[in-house]
């Protein structure tokens, strides 16, 4: 190739590179095939329309829609879009504290929901690893068998959790039971109403086997992952944002 043509090629490449960065094509809205209406070029999806119709039908005693319900629901959704448009234009999301709280909550819900969906599909190995690492969280509570002497206090003959003892004998007695050795006793109440509580037997708390605790393990795994995701997002956002604290907390 001759030198002039090479230079013309260079000019073309340079011009194309410049054009690429100077202009861009406008972003077109994603085609929404199932839109039931458009408000200021924003679609109202058939899904949200059907959900609104179902809600109206659910409110009816007959469970069915009336003749004019479809149009009324659609008009209400259009009104809702118009109100949202105006709220955004007025910047309510920036200055209305209630709306800001709702937005923050909705954002957390969004992050949590997405993480939950991922976490629910976690494989067996991940769950078992989590169980091994966090096994203390799946420890069963200690149980106690007691005898009451000197009063007719109704107490079941079997083993009881500390919480159940607290419900029947009160918080002070529950705390004392936890400290007792087998065959030891302590007095409860005063005067004629005094009686003695004796510890007959105790089963110390133990870690539940994985198979038995599986449901609790799954729930704890999902909860932990969700919390971690929210935290990770906030840590990243803090790194990427310009945050200045002007006043002493």
């Amino acid at each position: 190739m001759s030198r002039p043509w090479l230079l013309v090629g260079g000019m073309l490449v340079g011009a194309a590179l410049a054009v690429f960065y100077i202009v861009r094509l406008p972003q077109t809205a994603e085609p929404t095939a199932d839109a039931v209406a458009w408000v200021n070029e924003r679609p109202i999806s058939r899904g949200s329309y059907e959900a609104a119709l179902q809600a109206v039908a659910g409110d009816r005693k007959s469970g069915t829609l009336r003749e004019d319900d479809r149009d009324r629901v659609l008009q209400r959704l259009i009104d809702q879009e118009l109100l949202i448009d105006r709220a955004i234009e007025l910047g309510l999301h920036e200055r209305d504290p209630q709306m800001r709280n709702q937005l923050a909550t909705a954002m957390i819900d969004f992050l949590v929901r997405r993480t939950e969906d991922e976490a629910r599909t976690a494989d067996e190995a991940a769950l078992r690893a989590f169980y091994e690492e966090q096994s203390f969280r799946f420890q069963r509570s200690a149980q106690y068998r007691l005898a009451v002497e000197g009063a007719a206090v109704p107490l079941p003959g079997g083993f009881l959790l500390l919480k159940e003892i607290e419900q029947r004998l009160g918080p002070t007695a529950s705390r004392r039971v936890a400290e007792l050795e087998v065959d030891e006793s302590f007095l409860v109440g005063e005067g004629d109403r005094q009686y003695s509580v004796r510890l007959l037997e105790r089963r110390d708390g133990e870690i539940a086997p994985f198979e038995e605790a599986r449901e609790a393990v799954e729930a704890a795994y999902v909860r932990d992952r969700s919390e971690a995701t929210v935290r990770e997002y906030l840590d990243l956002a803090r790194q990427q944002s310009d945050i200045r604290v002007e006043a002493e907390p």
């Binding site: 002039p4 260079g10 000019m11 340079g14 011009a15 590179l17 410049a18 054009v19």
Partner: peptide, 22 residues
């Protein structure tokens, strides 16, 4: 922070070289 100027730099260099060649 204006990547378009990589293209403009290349264009300018080639343009003046072409003028000199022609």
């Amino acid at each position: 922070g204006l990547p378009a100027f990589w293209g403009i730099a290349l264009f300018t260099a080639c343009y003046f070289a072409l003028l000199r060649t022609l």
